[in-house]
Amino acid sequence: MNKKLLSLVLISGLIVSGVFASGAQESGDSAGKKVAGFVWYNYADTFITSARTVVANEAVNGPVALLSTDSQNDIAMQANNINALFAKKVDYICINNISPNDSASMIQKAKDQNIPILFVNCTSPTEEELASYDKVYHISSAAEQSGWIQGDAVSEYWKAHSDADRNGNGKLDYIMLVGMQGNYDSQMRTDKSIERVVDNGIEVNCLQEMLCDWQRGKAMNQVASVLAANGNDIDAIFANNDDMALGAIEALKASGYLGDGPYIPVVGVDATKVGVQAIEEGTLLATSLNNPVTLGKTIYKVLTLLDEGQPITDETVGATMTGKHIWLDYVAITKDNIEDAAY
């Protein structure tokens, strides 16, 4: 190739990509409207993408325009994005925070610029931090609910089926598929599901707890191994999300379980389309829906109320509030209410 031409191609590649990549994505006609800056933890996350799309759609005809940034699951990137949005002097800031220890300084920055700050779908700032500024809100699903729903579903199955105790030791022997160490949702689901089973008066025994990085393939490999080793002891499989639950189901099927073989209840979280299909087929016992549409609409509703100068209450927002927390409920999805999973 002609050397000059090659250089030209390389230079234009650099410029075009640079222009595309730099800066945040704007949605909603920003002329004359106030602007809300969003710091999403990771665009690659299915749930976040859905919520983000809903907020963007609401903004098309809404009173507040958006400026969205992607932290790419990187705390340093998140800090850069937050600084950039404050420097741009946005009118509202919404943070899908990945760094719970840092919320005090974010609130302080918002206070300095006197703009409302919303923490969305993340760990809450402490009550002290929430009290330190009047325009701070926390909008999130109640993570423990997703664990409770799993615990209740498995308890109910256990009590309804006399053969649920497969090795007859009087204890519910389970394996736990963990999404990510140190992740708030992962931790809550792991702990609260089992706590609930125990609260329901059932003795439990953890056969194995396995880290599967939220991934279907990893869960499948690990569960295949546990089945080969202790297949006859397993009474239930808890997974922090549907992808891992479905990986476990694939492993069960491959080893002759489910279908015509012995049944082992598997529970997940998320109510993904494939998860709901598995519930329909009877391979997944229960999952729960943290509805991204509800999240997106609630966030935008709060922004609208703030913009109009209205009070933020249970009635105006349409969700349960305790203090400055706005809680969005998980919905349990089982064979009886599959239609509720549609959004």
């Binding site: 056969l207 194995q208 707890e209 396995m210 880290l211 599967c212 490999n221 690990q222 295949a224 191994s225 546990v226 080969a228 080793a229 202790n230």
Partner: peptide, 13 residues
């Protein structure tokens, strides 16, 4: 390794 350690019940870590 990954299959065997899970098989004999050693933590995935």
């Amino acid at each position: 390794i990954s299959y065997g350690l899970t098989f004999i019940g050693i933590s995935s870590y």
